[in-house]
Write a protein that binds this DNA or RNA. Structure first.
Lengths: 340, 340
DNA sequence: TGCCGCATCCAAAGCGGTTTGGATATTCTC
DNA sequence: GAGAATATCCAAACCGCTTTGGATGCGGCA
């Protein structure tokens, strides 16, 4: 069933049927009702491909996964983030189109997406410092929203980010208030902008409290359970190691907890842990009393917000660039306690 | 730059240019080279939307996430699975289109995908027993491949699955060979077909060894760290609890390990654990000596395979339905040991 | 030389919608 | 009651590509 067929059955022109379905004003209310009824009856729905060609829009929003950021795919937050994205975009008639690319083909892939017209806008994730994708998007004229920010980029662009610096400042300050003086940091890969901001927040809290910054108490790397374990084990084995650690993800924290237990120590007593919690649905830290004390911000909510912003941008390219900073909440669990 | 523009610059007809680019034989080699050079120079690429309308194909493969299976999104294997899917489909010029739907709208969403023509084929994930999506796909005439199988469906369909039954038979048998007699099971949600098959494998091993099946030693539920912890804690607190446990995912196993440690026991000594390992990149169990003894099969590899099968199916709907059973490997780590 | 087949290219008809630019009643305005 | 505004509908162009059904020219063959 297509438009022509449907309109001829109705004894109307395709124009009128299209307009009736599209909600345009220049069609009689009764006619509109007839059309709607017939469309429902014959289960007619405008062909997206034709619609896309006619309107010049694909109704797709794109997300490109580069092997450079393979951790992205591999990243436990990926599922929740994508979930938030699709939830909102589906409601607006958009679907999410995923593309994978070799890292050295990344720019070519974006250009291809543009020249083929297969997406109307793009979500950029995991920005690094001076991320060159942003200039590229401007260059090819593709609407986009960044999940996070890229330090070092002067040109304005739309983004949605968590206030990572503030969150880590608060987290470290929370430990300081508990009396801790030697505080470690197990961070994500600091080439990622969010991780750099987190370190900055952590360091500024120490400085504000008049505490020295000791690089040997910190580490960075992929946010895996393994790495959390290895990093924590190293810290715990140190002479004069930390009595508390700020950890950049729940996955890392699970690894750190393992190391603490292996060392025969008790988390929240001998060693305090405060984690960043993306509020992932399958790694819930939302028990009555959370296991991990954490600074929490839902990555799914971020995905939803980003889809909203991007779709507004697509529908009206001349509107101003939206930028939104989300604050993380501090939740107290069982993994922290006063310094000995 | 579009076809018309490009062809007029070349002094050729759109027909010839299209054919030259498409690799059709009826075009002079020299002409073809000229066209290719011009296309590269002007960075021309056929508009996907127009191509889609003209050919009647969208070059999209679809994946629908239902809130019914919200765990799916939330599922840690999601990222890796999607990764495998996109890797392969991108190579064939397809992209992956994700759609989210309320569970009571699921059938409507599939029909919509069909009537709008927005995807050429669909990947069905997480089948349950008697999964009604399979009949629906047949009904609407949509090419599809199932990740897993659905017991109770008589009609043939294409699928790629792991031999879950055999894997769990082997896992339980491995524990039995170590001398364990009371063996627990912490399974996924058994409404999921794979989980039902896993239980069946587990039970058949016990039966084969002449051991009784004790339902109180088993549990099922979402495969979260929390649930793993709770289930293991319950088993360990039992009078005459199990000396070994088969666990359906690494995430569950991490929770179980926590319970074991909290109980003051040593994993691999007091209690043995064997897990199912999807070989997720961010929850690697691939250390020199793996932490967890496991039956392992890469879910990313499954995604790749599925994309291949689906694209073959789309290109040639009359070809036979492919069905592939992958075997899991058994890797020995530190989480198992002989019975006391 | 005349006919055929082959190589090469092109005009035009879709694909299934949206949208511009009227046409035709009908209703208002004074 | 005439002219204007309004409501309602339609024909046809267009989006950018693929593909069908020739057209043209040339060499080969009898």
């Amino acid at each position: 069933m297509n438009l022509k067929e449907l309109s001829s059955r109705l004894g109307l022109s395709p124009t009128t049927v299209s307009r009736a379905l599209g909600g345009y004003p220049e069609v009689n209310a009764e006619t509109r009702a007839r059309v709607a009824a017939a469309a429902a009856r014959y289960n007619y729905r405008p062909n997206k491909r034709a619609q896309a060609l006619a309107t010049g829009r694909s109704f797709n929003i794109g997300h490109v996964l580069s092997t450079k950021n393979k951790e992205q795919l591999v990243n436990p937050i990926f599922g929740d983030f994508i979930g938030g994205l699709t939830e909102t975009s589906a409601a607006a008639g958009y679907s999410l189109s995923l593309t994978l690319t070799e890292s050295d083909q990344e720019a070519a892939t974006f250009r291809k997406l543009k020249s083929e017209g297969s997406v109307d806008g793009i979500v950029l994730q995991a920005p690094v410092t001076n991320d060159d994708r942003i200039a590229l998007m401007h260059d090819i004229g593709m609407p986009f929203v960044v999940h996070g920010r890229a330090s070092g980029i002067a040109a304005p662009y739309a983004w949605v980010d968590v206030n990572n610096r503030h969150a880590f400042h608060r987290a470290a300050m929370f430990l300081i208030d508990l009396g801790h003086r030697r505080i470690g940091l197990i961070n994500g890969d600091e080439r990622m902008d969010f991780a750099a901001r987190r370190r900055s927040g952590y360091e500024s809290a120490l400085t504000d409290a008049g505490l020295p910054i000791d690089p040997t108490l910190t580490s960075q790397g992929a946010m895996t359970e393994d790495n959390g374990h290895a990093a924590a084990a190293r810290l715990l084995a140190m002479d004069g190691g930390p009595s508390a650690i700020v950890v950049s993800s729940i996955t890392l924290a699970i690894g750190a907890r393992r190391a603490i237990q292996e060392a025969g120590l008790v988390m929240g007593q001998d060693v305090s842990l405060i984690a960043y919690d993306d509020d992932l649905s399958y790694l819930s830290n939302r028990q009555d009393v959370p296991v991990f004390t954490a600074v929490r911000s839902s990555v799914r909510a971020a995905g939803q917000k980003i889809a909203e912003v991007l779709i507004r941008q697509i529908n009206d390219p001349d509107r101003g660039l939206e930028q939104e900073l989300m604050e993380a909440e501090l939740v107290v669990g069982t993994s922290t306690g006063p310094a000995a």
